[in-house]
Amino acid sequence: MSLTTKEPELRREAPAPAEPAGPPDRPARLWQRLRRDRALLFLMVPGLVYFAVFHYGALFGNVIAFKDYVPFIGVVDSPWVGFENFQVLFEDPSFWAAAANTVGLSFLQIVFFFPLPLALALLLHSVVQGRTRKFVQSVVYLPHFISWVIVVALFYQVIGGDGLVNGLLGGGDHLIDVVGNPAGFEPLMVAELIWKDCGWGTIIFLAALHNVDEGLYESAALDGAGPWRRFWHVTLPSIRPVVILLLILRLGEILTVGFEQIMLQRDQFGPDVAEVIDTYVYFNAVEGGHWGVSAAAALFKGVIAGILVYLANKIAHRMGEQGVYR
């Protein structure tokens, strides 16, 4: 067990011997260093086995995208079909509908969710009393730790057909007709996301606001700038790099819109409005039995998403070097 995981490290280390770092008393020979670090290498084993099996090993599972996978026969013995699964996938209108729903919902989230944590953070930051602020922060961070199953249960209990709000408004008439109404799907998804993660999202903005040099405000005030001008000319420019950074990172994840949240509610709203790429993969595989096509869809999404995240990180890093430098 331990031998098999140490082996690749030997090979991995071998081509890069010319590393200048490290204490001067470090033994130069590779086998000497292996011997010296054997306790550390032993400590790495369980974690590395995990990454080898469930990350790199799992990548091999993607071969079923090129196979006619039948669970009964197994991965190895299922016949190869080339790109047939991708052909089926790209000719499936429900896949493109799911992709359109995904991107549409992502944009709604960016437009309606993204600015709210920033607004709340600005508000919290401007509240002087430390204790009030601390209390509000404790309350608004809490929903982040509540599971999606419970968030959905809470929402339905409050605004569902038989929920509190309809009951208070007269009951029975379903005055607020959101749950199960296809037109209500996208607003409800965004509202749930706001409830769950708006408070949590303030943390990074609050940290950025906390780091703004107090001296800038002071000199602006001494030069006669009022609260609004200080906000426009000191606060906003100071946190702009963070905002742009987060926006770019979010754009990199445009194909990801909360799989658990939507999976829980897809049945009530129907696949026409509530199918996104991730739920398409799940329902098509597990309930439809089309494992190969689903794996093809997941692989297609994974590759595009990986490239987007990578590009977003690249761009963010480049912007970060200019923007965060103070």
């Binding site: 079923i64 794996a295 994974g302 995240v309």
Partner: peptide
């Protein structure tokens, strides 16, 4: 960058 999906 490439989290394994639930099928793999």
């Amino acid at each position: 960058l490439f989290p394994p999906g639930f099928i793999p």
